[in-house]
Design a protein around this nucleic acid. Structure first.
Lengths: 104, 104
DNA sequence: CCAATCATATCACTAAGTGCTATATTCTAT
DNA sequence: ATAGAATATAGCACTTAGTGATATGATTGG
């Protein structure tokens, strides 16, 4: 990460301070995070999850396989016994927006 | 898959029985699942996960935000204290193959 | 130089996720 | 028709991923 930046850039032009943010080698940190403007990942209710799956026209088993989770989990999502969070929620949003193909 | 078959066959041969399943209403079930040939989602080691993130040139915090998980979780993945499974593992594979843009 | 911000690491707790089993229903093929 | 297969739903007990808070060290900027 910044290791390489220092090595290369500083070797050439070590006084220029703001230059370290220019190259492709630089890392995106929280400082530029505002520009990313990530869409907020909102929680999905049981019915919504079922709708997403049915819109994709797949059974619970196939849906589970594609999301790399268990049928048991998908079922619990759809009956509201468990609520997807984190990466699972993100994946579901991806399927909702871009379809199953974007995920397979 | 069966979609097309049903559409054609039932259109000609309308006993009205399977009519509600015709066309776009059909669902992909486990029966045609073999054809999907899903690539097996293999577990990712700590170093691999770190490589994926560094290849994406983002900090742990940004990486976590994009995956809709916590910084704490990303850290544990990278030091091997916890292993991503299910949807999290699927998401990581997506980033590895298609890049962060495919997920944002 | 000092303060602020970022990145990384550690710890304890909660709940998501898994596997299993069982039942009822629906579709398929003989 | 009828048997066989696949789907959807449900409940239980267990494991561990995931989360939040906090602590330490490294960078940056005023």
């Amino acid at each position: 990460m910044r290791k390489t930046k220092s090595t290369i850039l500083e070797a050439v032009h070590e006084t220029a301070k703001g230059l370290h943010k220019v190259g492709v080698l630089d890392q995106v940190t929280l400082r530029e995070f505002d520009r990313l403007c990530l869409p907020p990942i909102e929680p999905l209710g049981p019915e919504q999850i079922k709708q997403i799956r049915e819109a994709a026209r797949v059974s619970q088993a196939v849906f589970a396989a594609i999301l790399n989770t268990s049928v048991s989990t998908v079922q619990k999502w759809e009956i509201g016994q468990k609520r997807p969070t984190g990466a699972a929620l993100k994946l579901l949003h991806l399927v909702q927006k871009r379809g199953l193909e974007a995920v397979v």
